[in-house]
């Protein structure tokens, strides 16, 4: 469930590697954010350098659990400013909050996972109901007047 996040964290775990997905000046937002993510995940034992511990955690993680993890993350309130304009080179926002929500990858992921959860539907009971061939139907009569149905010949 968290393979991609773990993969990113692994990429940025080496403190000597200041990397960025965009490889352009000013686009350090991802690495900055993921560094924060790594610390947070490690602190809450969601991430561990130990692969066995990670696998165990992932094996027990449900979709609801993933949402809870993402909901528990705060977005770092930091802006990487361009030296001259005072704005982020990538999103153009000067304010930390707006910048964080634009440049950090996690808000979008959190939002989409939240939307996904609202769109999930449960199963339809009628899909699984049994009807007995020997008369013990577990569903009642459909579309029938249950008061006036006597027919006199």
């Amino acid at each position: 469930m968290l393979e991609c996040i773990y993969q990113k964290i692994e990429t940025y775990r080496d403190s000597a590697a200041v990397l960025c997905a965009y490889k352009t000046k000013g686009d350090l937002c991802d690495s900055f954010f993921l560094g924060f993510l790594m610390k947070t995940f490690t602190r809450f034992k969601i991430y561990s350098p130990n692969i066995s511990e990670r696998d165990n955690y992932q094996a027990s993680l449900s979709i609801q659990g993933l949402k809870n993890v993402l909901d528990g993350l705060t977005i770092p309130n930091i802006v990487l400013q361009d030296g001259t304009s005072g704005r982020c080179d990538r999103c153009g926002y000067p304010r930390p909050t707006a910048h964080a929500y634009t440049c950090s990858p996690m808000p979008g992921l959190k939002r989409r996972v939240g939307v996904m959860l609202t769109e999930i539907r449960g199963l339809e009971w009628t899909q699984f109901v049994r009807n007995s061939s020997i008369g013990g139907a577990t569903t009642g009569p459909k579309n029938q007047d249950l008061w006036d149905y006597l027919e006199y010949n």
Binding site: C4, K8, L19, D30, L34, I63, L109, M116, L123
Partner: peptide, 27 residues
């Protein structure tokens, strides 16, 4: 049926992570 739907969700979640974390374009 629950397992099949959950399996689909896991795949979809993985796809979301790749999209937002750019996992397919590692630096």
């Amino acid at each position: 049926t629950c397992g099949a739907r959950l399996g689909f969700l896991v795949v979809y979640t993985d796809r979301l992570q790749r999209k937002f974390l750019h996992a397919d374009s590692r630096p």
